[in-house]
Structure formats: structure tokens, C-alpha cells
Simulated scan of single mutants.
Amino acid sequence: MSDVKLAAQTRTEFGKGAARRIRRESRVPAVVYGHGTDPVHISLPGHELLLALRTPNVLLTLDIEGKTELAIPKAVQRDAIKGSLDHVDLLLVKRGEKVTVEVPVQTEGELAPGAFILEHVLNTLSVEAEATHIPEAVSVSIEGLEAGASIHAKDIKLPKGTTLAIDEDAVVLQVLAAQAEEPAAEGEAEGDAAAEA
């Protein structure tokens, strides 16, 4: 998994006005919490943070006033229109510590020939992994699957050291037969038109 180093600045001003000023400086307000410590309010460089968050569950090495902390993103708030970062909640972690995270589910291969639809019941899989070895994603083969087939959480091969944090019988993917819309009979369409006239 990725490990990104970011220089953090502690902040003492709070509220919307202070947050706007921070964003005008191309920084993002954030809060770091965990391990029973008091939350620490910081700001982070906006562009670098935006690039880092493209990787799910990225491990961040924060330099907070000369002290190095490891953290993972827990909640990310974005501007609904611009897509820019508004605020980030970060969870402190330690090397060797296990954390529960949501990991994206990726598919490989093609369904069997025919009119089939692949439904993602779960787009992410809840897993427990060491904080410094969180998988970026899990892959599932859908090669040759037909309507009625389903893949459960227990069917997905997880990287070493990673375990499921949800019910192993939870359905992750299922294959459905495509439903063709039946065209309206010509007689019915003509009758409707006559009724409207």
C-alpha cells in the first residue's frame, strides 16, 4: 500500500470562517484522533492530500510540529459541486496494529456469452488488516459466470494477513438475466390514441 508523507500545521481557529481562510491558502482542515488521545486539529497541503486520497485507505505519515504520526483517512468531506476537499478526519494507527477498513472490490474476466447483468451488491468489502499492509483492492474473477451465480464474501481470496470483517455468507456480486422490455401491442397503442382523441 502507499505511504505518503505530509507536513501538517496545527490550527487554533475553528468555524466556517477559519476553514474558508485555510482553503484559500490551498490547504485542507483536518482532525486527527485515536488511541485515546485528544483530537488534534491540523491543516494539510490541499494538492498533495487530494493526490494521496486517490489511493483507497492510503497510509499517511504526518509531520505534526516535529512529531511523526501514522494515520489513515476515516471520513472525507468534499464540495458537492467542485469536488474539492472540505475536511478530512484521520485515524491514528501504529505499525502492527489491526484496523477495520472498506476495500474496493474489482472484477476480472468476462461473463458467459448471453444477456447477463453483473450486480455489485457490495462495492467494497469490510476487512481487518494491519495498518501498514492494507490492500488497495480485492480482485474477483467473474469469468464464465451465468445468471443465478453469486459470489459471497468467503469466496474472495484475501491477501495474507487480511481477514473478513463481515458475515462470510454476505453476497458481494450476483449475475442476473437481462430483462427485455416487451413492446406494447399495436392494437393497444391505437386504442389509447383513439381514447385520447
Rank of each mutant, 00 (worst) to 15 (best):
V58I: 13
V32N: 04
L70D: 00
G66D: 03
T68Q: 06
E69A: 03
H35F: 00
L49N: 14
A30H: 02
D63C: 02
H47Y: 14
P39C: 07
D38Q: 13
R27Y: 00
S26P: 04
T55Q: 13
P45A: 10
S26W: 08
R27G: 03
L44A: 05
V31G: 08
H47K: 15
G66T: 06
S26V: 09
H41L: 11
A30G: 14
V28Y: 11
L49K: 15
L50N: 15
I42N: 12
P29D: 01
H41G: 05
T68N: 01
V58A: 13
E48W: 02
L59A: 09
D63L: 10
G46L: 05
S43G: 06
E65Q: 14
T61G: 04
P29T: 09
S43Y: 10
R24Y: 06
P29K: 04
T61Y: 00
S26E: 13
R21S: 08
I64H: 09
T61M: 00
P45G: 07
D63G: 00
H41D: 05
I64P: 09
T55C: 01
T68C: 04
V58R: 02
L59M: 11
P39H: 09
T68L: 08
L53G: 14
V31D: 04
H35N: 02
L62C: 01
P29N: 10
E48G: 12
T55N: 12
V32E: 11
K67V: 04
R54S: 12
A52S: 09
E65W: 11
G66P: 13
P56S: 11
